[in-house]
């Protein structure tokens, strides 16, 4: 084996090790690196009580109710398998709407409801001019 081939082998091995490291990082971090809990994560693993967490999912169609005080909004977050009722008092982001993605920051209550201190709208990967989109707006899942 010439010195050059030896170096080439070493570099290829290093690249394979780097790729393996990336795969390990991606899979091992898994849930740790998740930005938010989905309602079905909570249903499966129990309520993360007493700490600030994020809850993400789709705002269920027809679930948004605004309270009489004008600032409190109630809605239901769903991921298709489980749902969580959310309460938030404050200014909602422009892109907050039904059948669209949302990430709520706040805490779970013991009864399973979620009290948000901040709302983030999650945008999906679709970009359309208004005349194409019409009045239809729907994001199917957050996996997209």
């Amino acid at each position: 084996m010439t010195a050059k081939n030896q170096r080439l082998t070493l570099v290829l091995l290093a690249l394979a090790a780097v790729a393996a490291a990336a795969l390990l990082a991606l899979s091992a971090l898994g849930d740790q690196a998740a930005f938010f809990y989905a309602p079905s994560d909570v249903a499966r693993n129990g309520l993360p009580l007493g700490k600030a967490v994020r809850l993400g999912g789709m705002v269920e169609a027809g679930s948004v109710r605004r309270a009489a005080d004008g600032v409190t909004v109630h809605f239901v977050v769903t991921d298709g398998r489980a749902t969580t009722p959310v309460t938030f008092a404050g200014i909602v982001p422009d892109l907050f709407r039904e059948k669209s993605g949302v990430v709520a920051e706040g805490q779970f209550r013991p009864d399973g409801a979620f009290v948000a201190t901040n709302l983030l709208a999650k945008h999906d990967e679709k970009y359309m001019p208004p005349e194409l989109a019409g009045k239809m707006h729907e994001t199917k899942t957050l996996e997209q």
Binding site: L26, L29, F35, F36, H123, D124, E125, L142, E143
Partner: peptide, 9 residues
């Protein structure tokens, strides 16, 4: 692989 605030590709 992770759920993120940033949308998918």
């Amino acid at each position: 692989w992770w759920n993120t605030l940033h949308q998918g590709p």
